[in-house]
Design a protein around this nucleic acid. Structure first.
Lengths: 235, 235
DNA sequence: CTCTGTGAAGTACTTCACAGCT
DNA sequence: AGCTGTGAAGTACTTCACAGAG
């Protein structure tokens, strides 16, 4: 038995381990449920929710089954109740205090991102190295100097960080975040960050996404050319 | 035999199908190789490249084996040659013309993203609905009116689009992009987009990423509490 | 009779270990 | 002797089909 499984049992948690693939989808279900709540829908079937989330319904039910049995057979799910259960499983009941490192266009876009503030995430600090940018107001925040990062992180009680800085300085700033006790980092820098095992890093990478699209587009094109060649041969 | 497999054979392509998981990693290898080229390194072993990409070496070799055998046993890989082969497999030899829809902070950040211009991607249009923003210069581009989107897409020969607009208008603009013949879309809007089967959509979602981090952080905490409880019980 | 929840089967990915070049 | 390339074994995820609750 692994340490974490053992810990779950001791902590009395019902959830043992959610597969990464399911975890990613649970956040989508949560958003779909939130928007349904907004529309005044209070009951939903697995078919309907699956449709809204863009997955098939057996997959949705399997995903939900990792959390427990929160539906009613023959009826469906209570939108509000299911939302709460998913939010609880994801750890969204406590408040997360996010520091954004890098106040360029991307950092500002993130600081102003509406869906950010909702669902338990609060942006508590915004850092930059540029003297012209330090001190500027962005939304409710004032940009802090990167030199004072450690003390501001401490004072604001940040427990998550977003890295929206150039690739060259990402590893250095990442190291400083880790040294300050941050263990959850979302990076937009196009580099592989080296961190200790107990630090979680997730990476969002525009170049990767475009290249994956390019691959599929090229394939589609090749298929198309081949189809035409085949059509010619057939005549 | 599926249509696409058949097409590959007819087109004479060596590559049949790259698993999605491998595809995502190939883009990372490509970046690592580019940076090695920049440093003047011209030979690399699977161990070294795997280290740089943050994966283990059997996985890297397996990934590369989907493309072909481009290494030399007992020696390693030629950095430049392997780069070219990966780029070719990903479809990066042709030039991709990208339109960015939405010129808010995020759209501007994307338009100015350096890694964007390199590797075959060129931003050819930038759209917004705000009269105050239309006509502004962002880098080398002038922001076009969203009303003229169809004609500008046509004129600029855009063949990929990035959606950096609010969730409420994302589906509508997506439909217009699809109607204009765009078949590759990268969306930053936090909604599930409905598109025909022949259109590829990839989604980047900040909220999802943070929620996944929150889940892991919460788990780490629970484990920690449990460990302490266990330590107490043991005494 | 409807719709959920879930073992079991099927599929895809990862890891392993070593054969095969150089 | 060293490092790649790859079948085969192992693991994780997805799909299926139906048992089971209402």
């Amino acid at each position: 038995m692994s340490t974490s499984e053992e810990s779950d049992r001791l902590a009395g948690a019902a959830v043992r381990h959610i597969p990464p693939a399911s975890l990613a989808r649970l956040t989508i279900y949560l958003r779909a449920l939130s928007s349904m709540l907004g529309e005044g829908i209070d009951r939903v079937s697995s078919d309907e929710l699956a449709e809204a989330a863009g997955v098939n319904s057996p997959k949705l039910r399997k995903d939900l089954s990792y959390l427990g049995s929160y539906g009613t057979r023959g009826v469906g799910y209570d939108v509000s109740y299911l939302s709460e259960q998913i939010a609880a499983a994801l750890g969204l009941t406590r408040n997360w205090r996010v520091a954004i490192v890098g106040a360029g266009n991307l950092g500002r876009a993130l600081a102003g991102y509406p869906g950010f503030g909702s669902r338990g995430f609060e942006v508590v600090a915004l850092f930059d190295a540029d003297q012209l940018v330090i001190g500027q107001e962005v939304g409710w925040l004032r940009v802090s100097s990167i030199e004072a990062m450690e003390s501001v992180l401490e004072r604001t009680g940040a427990n998550m960080a977003v890295l929206s800085v150039p690739a060259e300085v990402a590893q250095d700033l990442c190291d400083r975040l880790v040294a300050s006790g941050i263990t959850s980092i979302l990076s937009f820098a196009p580099v592989v960050l080296q961190v200790p095992d107990d630090v979680q890093v997730r990476k969002v990478d525009m170049a990767t996404e475009l290249q994956i699209l390019a691959y599929h587009a090229q394939r589609a094109q090749v298929s198309n050319i081949a189809s035409k060649a085949r059509a010619r041969l057939a005549t």
